[in-house]
Amino acid sequence: MKKFGAWFQKQNMYLLVGLLMTGLAVVLGILSFFWTPYGTTTMSVAERFHAPSLRHLFGTDNFGRDIFSRVMQGIGTTVIVSSLIVLISASAGILIGAVTGYFGGILDEVIMRITDAVNAFPSILLALVVISILGSGKQNVVLSLGIVFTPSYVRIVRSEFIRLRDSDFVCRARLMGVSKLRILFIHILPNIWSVFWVSVTIGFNNAILAESGMSYLGIGVQPPDASLGKMLSDAQGYLGRAPWYALAPGLTIVWIVLGFSLLSEGVRRKEEKKK
């Protein structure tokens, strides 16, 4: 009983801490569209390279801009971009996974070969290929990473549909003459959410890491859009003089990613417990 208590406490902690961490980031990011403590482009020679203080929580950069405000704005971009990436890849994944998993056949075979090939590939390389074709910029980052992450969802959705396609409730629905579309999305789909949410939270993680990595390399989000990755690469040149400039965006990325991995662990445990 005592062991169970400890286990119970632990599993709640994952979800709780994860929600708090990601929640704080999302709130700050959304808030940045309406309000930041200082103007994100306000420069001031007198305020260059101030160390973090109560006035400037994260200090100021080489132009005397308030880093905290800029980080907030960067979070905003990251939240929007990664949500769009997850939206695109998850919905494409559901569509393709549902159809291939339920119907099988040659189409399934072909699509599985493709997703296998894409999955085996390091995602950053694939995103680079797409970016080098489309060119950089916010929309292209969303599009390329949306494409790159689709196969991971296809895989999960497909295997769930294969598991459920011959189950009793589906056979019964089929006997009753329910349309195929309805079976796919009204009967089967709600049963896979538990597995699906875990992969969505992991997907957020991958999206954020990939987006900030590409922005760091200078082929992702372009100025004037703020981005944590770009900030970090700008800050690298002042590492000796103003380490907080690099630490602020970097630790923020770690914060968000850690939050999402705790969240996914929490969701996974919660769903496991349900079963």
Binding site: L209, S212, P243, G250, I253, V254
Partner: peptide
């Protein structure tokens, strides 16, 4: 280990540069 996995490689590079270099 959870934290180590959450650090993106480029930031880890910056941290290593800062710690060992500066």
């Amino acid at each position: 280990t959870q934290t180590a996995m959450a650090i993106p490689s480029f930031f880890l590079g910056v941290l290593v540069t800062y710690l060992f270099g500066f």
